[in-house]
Simulated scan of single mutants.
Amino acid sequence: MKKTLTSLIVTGLLAGCTPAGVKNIPQEDFDKNFVFTQSYDEVWGSTVEWFAMNNIPINSMEKDSGLISSNHGLSPGSSVINCGEPTGNVGLYQARFESADSNINVLVREIGPEQTRATVNIFGNAGIVVRNGYGNIVSSNEVRCVSTGKLENSYENFILSN
Results as ranks from 00 to 15, higher is better:
Glu28Asn: 10
Leu160Trp: 04
Lys2Arg: 11
Ser79Arg: 13
Glu142Gly: 03
Leu14Val: 12
Trp50Ile: 05
Asp101Ala: 00
Val129Ser: 10
Val80Ser: 07
Phe34Leu: 11
Ser140His: 09
Gly127Ala: 07
Asn121Cys: 03
Ser7Lys: 10
Leu74His: 02
Leu151Phe: 12
Leu5Glu: 13
Asn136Cys: 04
Thr148Gln: 04
Lys150Pro: 08
Ala15Phe: 12
Asp101Asn: 04
Ala100Ser: 14
Gly112Ser: 03
Lys2Leu: 12
Asn59Lys: 14
Ser70Thr: 03
Phe158His: 07
Arg117Trp: 05
Phe34Met: 09
Tyr155Ser: 00
Phe123Gly: 11
Gln38Val: 03
Tyr93Ala: 08
Gly91Ala: 03
Val143Leu: 10
Ile104Gly: 01
Ser39Phe: 04
Leu5Val: 10
Ser139Cys: 08
Arg144Thr: 09
Ser79Ala: 12
Ile25Asp: 04
Ala95Pro: 06
Phe51Trp: 10
Gly12Tyr: 08
Gly127Cys: 06
Ser75His: 12
Phe158Pro: 00
Gly124Ile: 00
Asn136Pro: 08
Ser99Trp: 09
Tyr93Met: 13
Gly133Met: 09
Phe51Gly: 03
Cys83Tyr: 02
Pro57Gly: 12
Ser78Leu: 09
Leu160Phe: 09
Arg117Ser: 05
Pro86Ile: 03
Arg96Gly: 09
Gly73Glu: 00
Asn125Glu: 01
Asp31Cys: 07
Ser60Phe: 14
Lys3Ser: 15
Gly84Thr: 01
Ser161Glu: 10
Ile104Glu: 00
Glu152Ala: 02
Val130Gln: 01
Glu49Phe: 11
Phe97Met: 06
Cys145Gly: 02
Pro57Val: 12
